[in-house]
Nucleic acid binder design. Structure first.
Lengths: 168, 168
DNA sequence: TCAAACTTTCAATAAGTACTGAAAATAATG
DNA sequence: CATTATTTTCAGTACTTATTGAAAGTTTGA
């Protein structure tokens, strides 16, 4: 079934927004990211405001967030006063940035909490069950932590090659 | 620094709830999961309602969701009329269930959308840039899809062993 | 140095999501 | 089969998060 560019763009922007939203990321932020990803030219805040029908404030705040995530860069055009924005197009870098950001914001704080919690003494049936669960989650978390570190450092395009063989 | 069991339980339940919430999962659902994870005995809906100070309706709905995710099981106690609930305690199974669920609900629909979108013809600068991005995301998505399938099938406890060496 | 162009901030409000409580449905018991 | 225990549903409401719009701040260049 054929699809026009405009239909495709619309569908992609909406789907990327929904995906983000399902993973706890602001829908508009994800939509701006989608729009910039598929734009061959850099866009200014006003372009984005118009395309997505949102306010300038909203566009601005989410652009800052995207820059903070390392997914979008500012671009200055000579002769132009306003700022332009371009998305990082290398998918491997995109994924690495997302992993880095979420690791820092969610995995690392969780590891810290588990560490604090593991000072509970296992001296009853209840506290033993508790400590066992915490230990298991710690084990998994620290493994995830080091695996993601390796993944982040592996700047190659591992994900397009054979990755299957890696798991057992 | 020492921590009592009750402090530890409270902190764990709250943190697990926050973690879930950050990843687009109902906070209460995650808290019920945490409570059941660390409970050596099965709990009934009323126990959970009391412990977390929530309504029966809320407890019931989120317990159904947890059962649907394959993270909690119903348990019938002889002599007892009401239902009891136990959490899956094997962390590997827990993670596998979560991956399975989210893969089905988010990755697979996205792959379907990308497939539809890729019928757009690359016959202009704009449509070429668009198709390139879609192809890159497809490449990554299908790799993620097959990797996760392998991961799900690998019923061993790979994650406690040496996993580092797998990435490059 | 002033005015225009543009960006940022944030209080008010809108939109989205989750929770309650009460009523309906279901299941077990005598 | 009627009573009671328990579970489920869902409309209304509360809570959370996202967005607007207007005002303040900043930068540029005439």
């Amino acid at each position: 079934m054929e699809m026009t560019l405009d239909e495709g763009k619309e569908k992609f922007i909406q789907s990327w927004g929904t995906l983000g939203s399902n993973w706890g990321i602001n829908r508009t932020m994800a939509q701006i990211h989608a729009l910039l990803l598929i734009s061959p030219e850099s866009l200014c805040a006003e372009d984005i405001r118009q395309e997505l029908q949102i306010s300038m404030g909203n566009a601005n705040m989410n652009l800052r967030a995207l820059i903070d995530w390392g997914l979008v860069y500012k671009k200055l055009k000579s002769g132009e006063r306003k700022e332009f924005f371009v998305a990082e197009k290398d998918m491997w870098v995109v994924i690495r940035q997302i992993i880095t950001h979420r690791k820092k914001k969610e995995l690392e704080p969780m590891i810290k909490v588990l560490d604090e919690i593991s000072s509970v003494q296992p001296n009853s049936e209840e506290s033993e069950a508790f400590c066992k669960v915490i230990r298991d989650i710690q084990l998994f978390s620290s493994k995830a932590d080091s695996t993601l570190d390796t993944l982040i450092k592996a700047d190659s395009h591992w994900f397009v090659g054979t990755f299957m063989k890696m798991i057992k």
